[in-house]
Amino acid sequence: MKKLRDTIEHYVLEMENHWKVLPVAKQRFLTKVFFGGYVFLTVIAIINIFISTGQKNNAMSTNHIEGISKESIEKGSGRDNTVNSTTKE
């Protein structure tokens, strides 16, 4: 675990040094681009939420679960409830 933490820390320091080497104008430009992308994704998510909740058919349907055998639930089914294991005892 310590080796993983050291690897991540080394990578972060390397990226931080790479960022500091960039000219200030390039840092500002990249910051604006990243922030603009974040705002764009946030606006898209909010619009998607408004569209999905604004629809009239936005109701949750609850139905009976199909495919469950009633035989295993019945107590007097005559089945043995033991499990056959393939491991050696």
Rank of each mutant, 00 (worst) to 15 (best):
L22W: 05
K70T: 02
V43C: 05
R5M: 02
T86Y: 10
R28G: 02
T42M: 10
A25P: 00
T53K: 11
A25D: 13
I44K: 06
R79I: 08
E9H: 04
F40D: 01
L41S: 08
I65Q: 14
M1C: 08
E16P: 00
K75R: 15
W19Q: 11
V39D: 00
G37C: 14
W19F: 13
G37H: 04
K56D: 00
S85K: 10
K2L: 06
L30K: 06
T62K: 08
L30S: 02
I49R: 08
N63W: 05
K32N: 15
V24F: 08
L41F: 14
S72D: 07
S52M: 05
A45W: 01
T53C: 07
H18P: 00
L30P: 00
R28W: 04
F29Y: 14
E16A: 07
K2C: 05
I47T: 09
K32D: 11
T86M: 10
E9I: 01
T31A: 08
L30R: 11
L4Y: 05
E9A: 06
M60T: 11
L4W: 06
T31G: 07
F40E: 02
S69T: 06
Y38M: 10
V33G: 01
Q55H: 13
S85H: 12
G36E: 01
L22S: 07
R28A: 13
I8Y: 15
G76R: 01
N48W: 09
S72E: 08
T86G: 09
V24Q: 15
K75G: 03
E71T: 14
S61W: 10
A59Q: 11
N58C: 12
N17R: 09
E74I: 02
E66A: 15
D6Q: 15
A25N: 13
K88I: 09
T53E: 13
V21D: 05
G54M: 05
S61D: 11
Q55F: 12
L13R: 04
I44R: 04
I51H: 12
S69F: 03
I51T: 13
I47F: 13
F29K: 15
T82N: 11
A59E: 14
F50L: 02
N84Q: 14
K75I: 12
K3A: 12
V39W: 00
K26Y: 01
V43Y: 04
R5Q: 12
I49N: 04
E14R: 09
T82V: 04
V39N: 00
G54Q: 09
T42C: 05
G36I: 02
H64D: 05
I8A: 10
T82F: 01
G37R: 07
F50D: 00
N17G: 03
K20P: 00
N48Q: 06
